Simulated scan of single mutants.
Amino acid sequence: MMHLKKVLTVCCVIGFSSCTFAGIITSTDQADFSLVSESFTYTPNATYANINSLSGNMTLQTAAGVGNPATAEHFYRAFATSVMAGNVYALNNDENFNVLFNSNQSAFAFRFEDNADVSLFTLEFFNGATSVGSTQFYSNLFNTPRFIGFSSDTVFNMVTVRENDGGANSNEYFQFYTAEAIPEPGTIALVGIFGGGLWFVRRYFPSV
């Protein structure tokens, strides 16, 4: 199992007041996350309106007018051209969309499938209007569902997803999860050691 790899800056030297953990970490191993599958309002016809998850946790917003060919309406329903079982998310033209969350998140995941042409997807994570990080992945394995998850050391409440496929306009389909990252055992041990060190300092050197 390929766990999430986190680089921790541990501020163990007395006098350092805080630690900074930054970056978006990606993993293709579902075991790195605790996952809850999200279903959305069924849309038999294309719509520009937001598509809301039945749980109320997540909203899909089309980035209409972005891309080449420009993104237009979107759907959440079954497609005969998709090999993923059940309903899937799809857009007309380039797959450019935003994922909005009803509360702050530290992880996010989805399954996706590409029908034909290689696409480069860029994801940017926002907390309000502030970007907290970005990452990219290629969809280069066709007609095969794949999983990818993202963990952030800074909370976010929106993710923008942007496609660049050179104007080929291939179809991609998505199924989404609410997620929590499962820390690597070594990370848990390191945090425990750091916490134990702080306790020791406070217990035996209270004036520091």
Rank of each mutant, 00 (worst) to 15 (best):
T81C: 00
T81S: 15
V83G: 08
M84D: 12
G86W: 13
G86E: 02
N87A: 15
V88W: 07
Y89W: 11
Y89C: 06
A90G: 09
A90I: 02
L91W: 00
N93Y: 10
E95R: 09
F97N: 01
F97A: 08
F97V: 07
N98D: 15
N98L: 06
N98A: 13
L100Q: 13
F101E: 05
S103C: 07
S103E: 10
Q105R: 15
S106Q: 14
S106N: 12
A107H: 00
F108Y: 15
R111Y: 12
R111W: 12
R111H: 13
E113V: 14
N115T: 14
D117T: 12
V118N: 14
S119H: 11
L120H: 11
T122C: 01
T122A: 09
T122Q: 10
T122S: 12
F125K: 03
F125H: 08
F126M: 00
F126G: 01
N127K: 14
N127Y: 09
G128F: 04
T130C: 01
T130N: 15
S131C: 10
S131T: 09
S131Q: 13
V132L: 11
S134H: 12
T135F: 00
Q136G: 07
Q136C: 04
Q136W: 07
Q136H: 04
F137T: 06
F137S: 03
Y138V: 11
N140T: 02
F142S: 01
F142L: 06
F142W: 09
F142N: 05
F142P: 07
N143Y: 02
T144H: 12
P145H: 12
F150Y: 12
S152L: 12
S152R: 11
D153C: 08
D153M: 13
V155K: 12
V155N: 13
V155F: 13
V155L: 13
F156P: 04
M158C: 10
V159R: 02
T160H: 09
T160L: 10
V161Y: 08
V161Q: 06
E163T: 05
E163Q: 15
E163H: 02
E163Y: 01
G166K: 12
G167C: 09
N169I: 01
S170L: 09
S170Q: 14
E172S: 14
Y173N: 01
Y173P: 06
F174P: 03
Q175P: 07
F176C: 08
F176V: 06
F176Q: 10
T178R: 11
T178M: 10
A181D: 09
A181E: 05
A181Y: 04
A181C: 04
P183Q: 05
P183G: 02
E184V: 06
P185Y: 00
G186E: 04
G186I: 10
T187S: 05
I188C: 03
A189N: 12
I193D: 10
I193V: 15
F194M: 01
F194R: 02
G195E: 01
G195M: 11
G196H: 01
W199I: 10
F200A: 04
V201Q: 13
R202N: 06
R203P: 03
R203G: 02
